[in-house]
Design a protein around this nucleic acid. Structure first.
Lengths: 340, 340
DNA sequence: AATACATGAACAACCGATTGCGCAAAACGT
DNA sequence: ACGTTTTGCGCAATCGGTTGTTCATGTATT
């Protein structure tokens, strides 16, 4: 490899200038002559010098690290989401010469985050799966650390970025209603998550907008496991449900399994639509109508926003990102074939 | 909050000693009188002073960060594994006052890792899913950065920690053979991963040890998607396979789905066993015989090892961690009930 | 009692950058 | 041509710690 690690002092000595000059050439701040700057920059280029970020950080009391708060009590179905967020975040951070430091946090224990903050190891934080009145958000406010939340919270003082779950779910539902489907069931997870609330909101809005009556008994939230899904699906069938919308891949695959066991055909007898979180259902036959989000882009946007805040720019209080609805076979209009 | 951020200098002034003394009281290094140390430590305790890790790092040319290399081209079924590793790593790191910095890396692009290294942001690295002659490992060797690999590689010069996949798979197979089952199929993923090779090795070893002939045509590796599984399972059934071992949850659920479609009962007609990676199959009926690994512990061990290396301790070249085999209903001995 | 050794604490340099201030030379205005 | 402003650059302090060396004590050795 290259000999030693160059320092700003080495370059200064070599070029017969002062450390100040070298520093200014690099940062572009302060007064410096054009040709001197060129000379320094060229030297740097040739000897591919890299400034010591630690030293820079000490002088500027910054670290060029951002914290990424990940839940320690995650659910498997959330993983593809977190992973894709991370991907986007880490790409943007990297491109701006920042690094991502993870803090695993649970409802009871936010000590990893606190350590990172107290030790001055991070300049800002990205929160995933924020709940209202969440301990991390509270703590960060108190410590005056800039932070951005991925997902929605009711606390408007928190900068937040999310996909537009409400519109997405409304639009999907509208499309189904337009097809003449009326009895649509909605199956979702944790009701306290804003994402669940928003999707539910969109679902109901679709009915309202079309002036249709919504039967609330077909909304099932806080659905956790496959056994529960099985039970629900059986009940739905009896009640003559025409379509089932699930809020994640796992729920959807549970529904599909149950239907298969019951020998009920999709989409002939019941239609199915879902929110895709992963590629698990990508190759399913029949193909599943779904709402997809560009989660990596969500991560990128969030990171950009946070870095903007850190650098002192003004950032919007809330941003909503788009979605994509793919109508596929599982909600296809079908002519009922009798006695097959 | 507390007033300002205390520095070592503030404490020194306040206590009428030198910065050196304060520093020595904290670190325990160098000569210092017992009562002076007590005085300093007490003051620190009372004013809950936190040393600035950045400054400390600059002085010692360390960062108290470790890099965690995550693949950018992951497969969904691997996520629970990575997540659990991360959990374990981050717990240990945190407890030793280190932080975890992530670098997302693909086969073509290791620039994130390089940035972290060049910018002196990490003291060591943990590699996940290392392949032989992997670019990251090569790079880290070159740069003389201490690193540990999670999982096995053939390169014995790399410190590596893994679960004992070979023994695990051998033991499971032996148990099945002991039950009198002979025609066992093995379905696995990417053949170039050491984990696949090791499990296969264990599988074959079981036959050898029991002096039984192994029919190699029932070994299927590089199986990627559900469609492929479906085809394989159909073929197996025709060939009268008695048991199917899958190497991950996804493959297992594909197998189970196919069997259900074909109306083949588990365990009466075919037995099924798997490696659990997540909790996806936890509540399956029938319950699935499986090999489980404590992945979080794997993460913890790895992190301990790396931190040991960084602190200059001697560490073993290779460690193998245990596993747990749970024999459940899916491989139960059954009396064949006819004409049910 | 004289010499050797161990101990406790401070001085000051250092890690590798940034930055306010000062000074000389160059550019400007009239 | 002379005072004023601008420009280019270096000095030295600073960020918050660590550490080799020095030095004044206190204790042990014979």
């Amino acid at each position: 490899m290259d000999e030693k690690n160059l320092t700003i002092g080495d370059i200064a000595r070599e070029l017969g200038v002062s450390k100040t000059t070298v520093s200014r050439a690099i940062s572009g701040k302060g007064r410096i002559g054009a040709e001197t700057r060129e000379k320094v920059l060229q030297y740097i280029e040739e000897h591919n010098y890299r400034p010591n970020v630690i030293a820079k950080g000490l002088a500027q009391s910054r670290t060029f690290n951002i914290g990424l708060v990940m839940p320690g009590d995650y659910n498997v179905v959330e993983l593809p989401f977190f992973q894709n967020c991370m991907l986007g975040i880490s790409k943007v951070a990297s491109s701006m010469d920042y690094d991502v430091l993870i803090s695993v946090v649970t409802a009871e224990d936010i000590s990893q985050l606190q350590r990172a903050v107290i030790n001055h190891k991070i300049d800002g934080v990205i929160l995933t799966r924020t709940l209202v009145e969440d301990a991390p958000a509270k703590y960060l406010k108190e410590m005056q650390i800039p932070f951005v939340a991925i997902g929605s919270t009711e606390d408007r003082s928190i900068i937040q970025i999310d996909n537009d779950h409400r519109s997405a779910c409304r639009e999907l539902t509208e499309k189904l209603l337009t097809q003449g489907i009326r009895k649509i069931a909605l199956i979702g997870g944790n009701q306290s998550y804003m994402v669940t609330k928003n999707r539910l909101g969109g679902f109901m809005e679709a009915y309202t907008r079309q002036g249709l009556e919504l039967e609330k008994e077909h909304i099932y939230l806080d659905v956790e496991d496959g056994a529960m899904v099985k039970e629900l699906v059986q009940r739905m069938i009896k009640e003559g449900i025409e379509c089932i919308i699930t809020m994640d891949d796992y729920l959807c695959s549970c529904v599909l399994n149950t239907l298969q066991q019951l020998q009920i055909h999709v989409p002939e007898q019941v239609k199915v639509a879902s929110f895709y979180d992963s590629s698990f259902l990508e190759n399913h036959v029949p193909s599943i109508t779904s709402i997809q989000f560009d989660v990596e882009e969500l991560g990128r946007m969030t990171c950009k926003t946070l870095l903007g805040m850190i650098e002192g720019e003004a950032v919007p209080e809330k941003s909503l990102l788009g979605y994509e609805i793919s109508l596929r076979n599982s909600t296809e209009k079908t002519v009922l074939v009798q006695n097959r």
